[in-house]
Design a protein around this nucleic acid. Structure first.
Lengths: 245, 245
DNA sequence: GCAAAAGTGTTAGCCTTACACCCATGG
DNA sequence: CCATGGGTGTAAGGCTAACACTTTTGC
């Protein structure tokens, strides 16, 4: 904002006010499929329809704070889960008419989680569930578009950032990390090449000291790694046949 | 937004309303230096201080529409100039207290222009000017941060998109395009390699048919190009020693 | 033993980098 | 004729892509 170009007799309370909300596209990788966290609406409009979790920003809150609060309220995810998740502002949706009730501007966030416990409904959400990304029905409001934008955004950021570790538990194998890429991008990657790329990128991952090893299912046990301190990837890890941002 | 979690007795008009504004980080390359379009505030708070152009979103507008309107009002740039510029949503700033008067949520945009005419003040802006990026004084509100974010964002997007052509006139030489990169990144690029990279990227630029040639200053006349239809760059054009997003 | 996944090695090819060199123009 | 920028060529090196092969586990 700059100089308040108050139109004739402008008074903040005279206009129909803007409501400011947050919407969350919460994504996880579970069983090799990308899942989104959705809630079933308990009220009109769109009562009974699936929607992204979210809600109003309160007067004292920043949008980021509101995002974490709403997520905890509506999905019953634990405080530590919500406190630790990776939140990233995605886009702000401002079209008049996107909410039939009133003028609503929504700040959308993407959030990434390692495979988490089943959520439960709460707050105004009648129900909360993980749905496989390719089985998501039509959503309320413009949430279809927000979810699509979120998926595209995450896919693009996997190329240039260490974001993928946000989908993994604190200690993970390179196979798990690779599966994040494969799931989000919908491709298969060459295991040896992926391994080299990740290990030669300083700060992407760091080995867990005590050489304990963990088994995925069957097959050779894999070494464990933690997320490193790096945040950007140079050079990037481009997806095959890639298109990006 | 999702289920409206109306706190007890919630009524949109009962809360102190949120104001929604847009702020614009308008950048151009002029004389080999990155410039930002700034306005001098005519009113309190921060009267007399430099700030980004911007203003309130009106009830019937989307934020993008408001951005173009405010830019035309405050800087006197022509309608065609404003209509044609490349606008990109950057980030939304929501911290309580970022405006001392009231709760203001601001949707920030970056806009890129080819070297344009000098703007004039208008609307609520006492004065509008291009300032070299490294001579920008402390700005009103949190506009310093917005401008810094915009510069970082543009620099990163030059690597992966055809955004650089937005800084160029409809027909331009490869030297002009290269200068955009060099100016924004603050590096010098190898001319032959830059040329090859641009020309071998399908859809980045296309040659202007009639082999007219234009002289920059002295030196051999250069061939002219138009922006192509491509929007993404694959593979990317990474900045040397690069760091990015 | 066989399937599955981890881990190591190797090679060909692409792309970038660095730099040499010629061309066209203005002073 | 020289400085300046456009345009072409080329060789070295880094990185990726593709694939062969060994290791270690569960069944």
């Amino acid at each position: 904002m700059t100089t308040p170009p108050r139109p004739e007799g402008y008074d903040p309370r005279a206009f129909e006010p803007f409501a400011v909300t947050v919407d969350l596209a919460v994504l996880t990788v579970r069983a090799g499929r990308l899942h989104a966290l959705l809630v079933r609406r308990g009220q009109e409009p769109y009562a009974g329809a699936w929607a992204l979790p979210g809600g109003f920003v309160l007067p004292h809150e920043s949008a980021g704070t509101a995002a974490r609060r709403e997520l905890a309220e509506e999905t019953g995810l634990s405080g530590t889960t919500v406190a630790g998740l990776h939140l990233e502002q995605l886009h702000t949706y401002t079209e008049p008419g996107r909410d039939p009730r009133m003028r609503v501007v929504s700040v959308a966030y993407t959030a990434l989680l390692p495979d988490p416990p089943e959520p439960r409904g709460g707050g105004d959400a009648a129900e909360a569930r993980w749905l496989p990304h390719d089985e998501v029905p039509a959503l309320a409001f413009d949430h279809d578009r927000i979810l699509a934008d979120a998926r595209a955004h995450v896919g693009a950021r996997l190329e240039h950032t260490c974001l993928a570790t946000a989908f993994c538990p604190p200690e993970f194998t390179l196979g798990e990390l690779r599966q994040v890429y494969e799931t989000v991008w919908g491709v298969t990657l060459d295991r040896p090449n992926f391994r080299r790329k990740v290990l030669t990128t300083p700060g992407f991952v760091e080995p867990v000291e005590g050489p304990p090893r963990r088994t995925g299912a069957r097959g050779k046990p894999a070494a464990l790694y933690r997320a490193g301190r790096a945040t950007a990837l140079h050079p990037p890890l481009l997806r095959p046949e890639g298109r990006s941002a």
